[in-house]
Amino acid sequence: MKKEFIALLSLILLISVSMVNIHFLTKITTDIAGLVEETDKYIRTENWEKARESAGKAQRKWDRHDAYIHMVLRQTEIESVRSSLSELSKALISESDTAKGAARAAISQMKSVASIERIRLRNIF
């Protein structure tokens, strides 16, 4: 009975940790998506300085959680987020028209990463 009790406790603990992980990952990706949305707004008003600052914040936030992200996300997902943030930075430096598209791509990438970990029927099946 002791073995079963430990197994049940461990199972509850694992599920709780998974829930915390989902919440934490969603928070990080939502925050970054928020910063990129802010960047997008500045791009629309052609406030390039503020846009670069906001995109820089998003990049730094992503880099700060690099070790954690590598433990919980697949390499392909990490690479696609990295490349979309890098594309956005390049477009902002050159102040080109592609910046808007790059910002939209980064936002959708972040939202996709956040939705992967959520417990939904479409994610399960």
Binding site: K3, A7, H70
Partner: peptide
């Protein structure tokens, strides 16, 4: 990530014990 293998294995083992 290794966790993608470790966590399901742990869950299966725990379910099996139960």
């Amino acid at each position: 990530p290794l966790l993608y293998g470790l966590i399901p294995v742990m869950i299966l083992v725990l379910c099996q014990v139960l």
